[in-house]
Simulated scan of single mutants.
Amino acid sequence: MTTWFITGASRGFGREIARQALDRGDGVVATARNPEAVTRALPGYGGRLLALALDVTDEEQVRTAVAAAVEAFGTIDVLVNNAGRGLLGAVEEASDAAVRAVYDTNVFGLLAVSRAVLPVMRRQRSGRVLNFSSLGGFSSSAGFGIYCSTKFAVEGISEAMHAELAPLGIGVTLVEPGYFRTDFLDAGSLHTEDTVIADYAATSGAVRGAVPGLNHAQPGDPVKGAAAVLALADAGTPPVRAQLGSDCVAELERKIAQLHEESAVWRHLALSTDHDDAPARVRSPGA
Rank of each mutant, 00 (worst) to 15 (best):
I170V: 10
G74C: 10
I170N: 01
F13L: 15
P167G: 13
V211T: 03
T39E: 14
S114Q: 07
A264D: 09
T7K: 01
C248S: 08
V249N: 03
I17V: 15
G286Q: 11
S134V: 02
G74E: 11
A187L: 14
V229M: 10
R122G: 04
T192K: 08
R85S: 12
Q20L: 08
F5T: 06
I197S: 05
A69I: 11
S134L: 04
P43I: 11
Y179M: 09
T237E: 13
G213W: 08
D104R: 01
V66L: 10
G74K: 09
L110F: 04
V229I: 15
Q61R: 13
R40A: 13
V282S: 10
L87V: 02
D58V: 14
H275P: 13
S246H: 14
R283T: 12
P279Y: 07
A67R: 15
S272Y: 04
P119Y: 11
C148S: 09
D58Y: 05
A270E: 15
T150I: 13
S141G: 14
G136I: 00
G109P: 01
Y200V: 00
G137I: 08
A9T: 01
E36Y: 07
A206H: 10
K255C: 05
D277H: 10
W266E: 03
V91I: 12
V29M: 04
D26M: 07
Y147P: 04
A287S: 08
A65W: 03
R125N: 02
S189G: 04
R15L: 14
R11L: 05
G169A: 07
L22S: 05
L259V: 07
N106V: 02
A235G: 09
H260Y: 15
A53Y: 07
V80D: 01
E193Y: 04
A280L: 12
F180Y: 12
P279K: 07
M1C: 04
P212I: 09
E16F: 01
R40L: 05
V249R: 14
W4K: 02
T75N: 02
E164R: 11
A227C: 11
L190D: 00
D274C: 06
V70I: 08
R267Q: 14
V99H: 04
G44C: 06
A18D: 06
